[in-house]
Amino acid sequence: MRRSMLFLPGNNPNMLINGNCLGADAIIFDLEDAVSPAEKDAARILVRNTLRYMDFGGCERIVRINSIDTPYWKKDLSTILPWKPDMILLPKTGAAADAQAVDAYLTELEQQLGMEPNTVALMPLIETAMGVENAFSIATAAKRVRALFLGAEDLTTDLQCKRTKESKEIFYARTRLVMAARAAGVEVYDTPFIDINDDIGIREDAAFAKDLGFSGKVSISPRHVEVINEVFSPTQSEIDYAYEVLDAIALAKKQGKGAISLRGKMIDAPIVTRAQQTISMAMALGLGREEA
């Protein structure tokens, strides 16, 4: 479960050592934009040591490596892989071939290190027009691709349009990515909300992303994490309804009934699936019923 993913600059010890306390379901150690070219080596080693020595508990550890058109990405991967990051975030993924190049190198490294193949997952960052157009083929490029992530800042530059708080300019990209990811059976994460002081804006933006079908949202500010977690968690009434649905199903089975209705509405397969999803998330958050 990744409701929230938080970017931390890869060469800032003060942020890295407290990463597990900031409430995010996953931390993204950034070796790319947050690190200047002269410090790429220092950040790589610092992030490797953070992975090696710090206990992140239940918090997932993701590393954003440099893109494959830079001289850094292979060194990034070979340095950090022995300490088993959960996932690699690949920036500027424009085509399936980009993801496949990284997949091939990861497979090679996993073999060298005696790790099971596909141990480390891959999440392409879609932030170019080409990437959006190729979203489905990227999502299905390799077995280790488990999620897509929309990056709206670079994308709007590529689109030659202005990035606005209303985000109408990325509506197509958002829906296109959700469609591609769901068709491929992978998760999909929404772009960060940029104004770190707008407490109302982040809530609306996250809620909209959830309504579109995103699995969670990435943040560049620890201040946004709690709101994102809240928005992407099931509400108590959603949980209650999900239990009602499953109870009604169980009862109907016992009574040998075929068609079931609840609150005057027919319960069909999609409603049941959704109820199951809600409850598995509630259980993961410790909000579920004691007995299963």
Partner: peptide, 22 residues
């Protein structure tokens, strides 16, 4: 006031840079 993992990283980086081995 660096933690040990930070200290290790910085010494290693400085050594590699000093050896011209970046």
């Amino acid at each position: 006031g660096a933690l040990e993992c930070v200290l290790r990283a910085r010494v290693e980086t400085a050594a590699l840079r000093g050896k011209g081995n970046v």
